[in-house]
Design a protein around this nucleic acid. Sequence first.
DNA 1: TCTACTGTTCTAGTTGCCTAATACAGTAAA
DNA 2: TTTACTGTATTAGGCAACTAGAACAGTAGA
Lengths: 118, 118
Amino acid sequence: MQIVEMICEKILTRTWLEGDKIPSVRELAVSIEVNPNTIMRSYAYLQEKGIIQNKRGIGYFVAEHAHDDTLDLMKFNFIKNDLPLFFKTISLLNIDFEELKERFNKFEKGKEKDEDKQ
Amino acid sequence: MQIVEMICEKILTRTWLEGDKIPSVRELAVSIEVNPNTIMRSYAYLQEKGIIQNKRGIGYFVAEHAHDDTLDLMKFNFIKNDLPLFFKTISLLNIDFEELKERFNKFEKGKEKDEDKQ
DNA sequence: TCTACTGTTCTAGTTGCCTAATACAGTAAA
DNA sequence: TTTACTGTATTAGGCAACTAGAACAGTAGA
């Protein structure tokens, strides 16, 4: 699932565009130092979700509408699973929504600096 | 770690007060259907963090200042680990902070209803 | 056709974490 | 002292997910 999220991120940030060939099972396996079988399972999952497509003997490719589909899928899971847990936690820790907003602004500022460096 | 969080939650919500005896290793093991050894590891971790104390042959007890210490510990971990990931995700999914606030308000309203039922 | 890529499948072995079962030890009350 | 709780420790085993290594199959280009 960590691998799946890594791939989704590439698609959402438009690092990988629709129609692009993505790394081969073996290639990605080497670069992130896991077993090809593990990559296969991740790719199979994403193919099932219609986010990537496979041409046997050639490789895997980012599907049409992958960006929007990924966004829908991730947003759905986020709202269903992560958000309730998150709200429960900030409620439990008595964290103010204003404090949250401040920290988020700081976070976004940090990102701008990263972009400036590149 | 799920067990640890469950216990922290009991302390934060003042379900278990400082000085209270908490369920014995075996008792809790039976009630949540895990092995006593698993509970032991959780209790050992919390003892190491100074949140619970142990009296051999008698049981485990909620330590003095456990509420504040738990709050500090959880808040520290939350800000260090969960929050950056959370911000990254809402940024990636392009979720507006206003939308977040609305969903949080809805969440809080849902809690009020739960409290009314009790 | 041959070569070098791709995906796909299979078996065997490793690892981490949990379970199961048992034993030993400290404490308190009958 | 006995009983019935506590915590603590050890050993063996199960299970899920991964690794390791190999084999087979489709595709494209030299």
